[in-house]
């Protein structure tokens, strides 16, 4: 139930984000979800894309520093409190969240959220126990 995410180190300078995204666009890589964590001088661009390995190769060829990490994509009810409910389970189980961001596309009536915690295996089994829907890689591609 883990899915692959690209983390790209970006200096905070003009055009760097554009260069990364246009390099992927030229090779027909589609972006399903995106987030940027930044400080005043540098940031990390996080991407869920259709072909992560190929995307990594393309970016490295363009001299970006890239790492593939595992994350979880979970579907939560698209209504007030939908995400909070899922997070409460993690809170109660004392699992810290490293970062979280949302997919643009919905999965049926549900919103899809990307989640990275300090312990992915424990998070997966906990959320499955609580009947929270986790997306497989095929689910992600079908979005």
């Amino acid at each position: 139930m883990k899915i692959k995410q690209l983390s790209i180190f970006l200096e905070n300078k003009r055009g760097r984000l554009y260069e990364a995204l246009s390099a992927l666009a030229k090779e027909g890589i589609n972006i399903r979800a995106l987030s940027i964590a930044d400080t005043s001088e540098f940031g990390i661009l996080r991407l869920i894309v259709t072909e992560p390995e190929k995307a990594k190769e393309i970016l490295e060829k363009n001299e970006f520093t890239v790492k593939i990490a595992n994350v979880i994509a979970m579907a939560v009810a698209d209504k007030p409190g939908g995400l909070a409910e899922a997070l409460k389970y993690l809170y109660d189980a004392n699992i810290n969240i490293e970062y979280i961001y949302a997919f643009v596309e919905k999965s049926g009536e549900k919103a899809v959220v990307v989640l990275r915690t300090e312990n992915l295996d424990k998070t997966i089994s906990l959320l499955q126990q609580k009947d929270i829907k986790l997306l497989s890689w095929d689910d992600v591609l079908a979005l």
């Binding site: 983390s7 930044d38 400080t39 990390i44 996080r46 520093t65 790492k67 990490a69």
Partner: peptide, 15 residues
Amino acid sequence: EIDKELFDGKIERLI
């Protein structure tokens, strides 16, 4: 420059 091999995608670590 950051070390390509040791980059782990975590912003906390860089900070």
